[in-house]
Simulated assay, not measured.
Amino acid sequence: MDANGEELAPAVRSILDAAHERAGGEERISVDARSFSDALADAEADGRVPVIAEVKPTSPTTAGRRDDDPVDLARAMVAGGATALSVLTEPEHFGGSTDALERVRAAVDVPVLRKDFIVEESQLDLVASDLTLLIARFVDDLSGLLQAAEERGFQPLVEVHTRAELDRALDAGADLIGVNNRDLGALEVDLDTFESIAPHVPDDVTLIAESGIGSTDDVRRMRSAGADALLIGSAIMDGDVTDNVRRFTTA
């Protein structure tokens, strides 16, 4: 079960169990983060749809694995117009690593999100990034972890899937919120999730649509529903990543 006492898909249960066993960093990190809000403004000024392109070697919901050098993929995504990048650092189930994130962040000049299942404050200290993901469903003390991330210089992206999780995120002080269209209990994707939650998000909160975005029609649908940016992984990793990013950023 998760922090809310709800059942999880076995694959997600395994990921969360591994997260609770993973050690944190030994020294507290301090980050000079690249501004995500500035990157969004630059994309809008250029007429690009703001896309966070995800470097995702594999996942429990995708078939196969992509073994390209993460730096090559990252540079190709930026060449396609990505506003920011998301890099998986979860090793057991997604093939990610903190080393990959370090190398990617050194190679590009856009903000980089650390995508992982962070459940303890010390796990924030494993690697520097510009943004870091906090999944409301998996965090007991969301306000405490969000504050700890901000104190280190991170821009926390708080992920929610339900209205109750949105309320928790807002109460904790989150001003950057992602709505995951994938139900981590059943691993099913429904874009209606974003459309049902977005109207309840205050105007001063930056809102990101996550998961299930596989076409330009999906991009337009999420933008019409209020998405300030889109996090896209599998649909970009499947094929030529530069062309895929360009297709979504010009939708």
Score class of each variant (00 low, 15 high):
residue 64 G to R: 07
residue 154 F to A: 12
residue 85 L to F: 10
residue 102 E to R: 15
residue 97 S to H: 03
residue 178 G to Y: 09
residue 138 F to C: 13
residue 50 P to C: 11
residue 166 L to E: 08
residue 182 R to M: 02
residue 168 R to A: 05
residue 117 F to E: 15
residue 88 L to R: 01
residue 167 D to N: 10
residue 108 V to A: 15
residue 124 L to P: 09
residue 83 T to N: 08
residue 54 E to M: 15
residue 166 L to Y: 03
residue 90 E to N: 14
residue 91 P to S: 04
residue 184 L to A: 09
residue 156 P to Y: 10
residue 122 S to Y: 01
residue 169 A to N: 08
residue 140 D to L: 05
residue 186 A to F: 05
residue 144 G to S: 14
residue 58 T to N: 10
residue 67 D to R: 00
residue 49 V to G: 03
residue 176 L to Q: 08
residue 108 V to H: 13
residue 180 N to C: 06
residue 127 V to S: 09
residue 117 F to N: 11
residue 149 A to P: 05
residue 180 N to I: 11
residue 188 E to T: 14
residue 134 L to V: 06
residue 127 V to A: 12
residue 155 Q to I: 04
residue 89 T to Y: 07
residue 56 K to F: 00
residue 178 G to M: 07
residue 76 A to C: 07
residue 184 L to E: 06
residue 196 S to L: 13
residue 175 D to E: 07
residue 137 R to P: 02
residue 106 A to V: 04
residue 85 L to R: 12
residue 103 R to K: 12
residue 171 D to A: 15
residue 66 R to N: 13
residue 89 T to Q: 01
residue 107 A to T: 12
residue 123 Q to N: 05
residue 57 P to V: 06
residue 135 I to T: 11
residue 111 P to A: 01
residue 86 S to I: 09
residue 48 R to C: 07
residue 95 G to R: 03
residue 121 E to P: 14
residue 108 V to L: 14
residue 173 G to Q: 01
residue 72 D to F: 03
residue 68 D to F: 10
residue 185 G to I: 00
residue 144 G to W: 09
residue 102 E to S: 12
residue 84 A to Y: 11
residue 156 P to M: 10
residue 60 P to Q: 10
residue 137 R to G: 03
residue 170 L to R: 02
residue 62 T to E: 06
residue 176 L to K: 00
residue 117 F to G: 08
residue 188 E to M: 10
residue 59 S to Q: 03
residue 196 S to H: 12
residue 162 T to S: 15
residue 110 V to L: 15
residue 149 A to E: 12
residue 114 R to M: 15
residue 142 L to D: 01
residue 70 P to F: 00
residue 159 E to S: 08
residue 67 D to Q: 00
residue 189 V to W: 06
residue 52 I to T: 03
residue 106 A to W: 11
residue 185 G to F: 08
residue 134 L to C: 09
residue 158 V to I: 14
residue 157 L to F: 05
residue 59 S to L: 07
residue 146 L to S: 08
residue 73 L to N: 00
residue 103 R to N: 05
residue 58 T to K: 14
residue 105 R to K: 06
residue 79 A to Q: 06
residue 53 A to G: 01
residue 108 V to K: 13
residue 150 E to V: 14
residue 126 L to A: 06
residue 61 T to R: 02
residue 193 T to V: 15
residue 161 H to D: 01
residue 112 V to N: 04
residue 91 P to E: 13
residue 92 E to K: 05
residue 135 I to A: 02
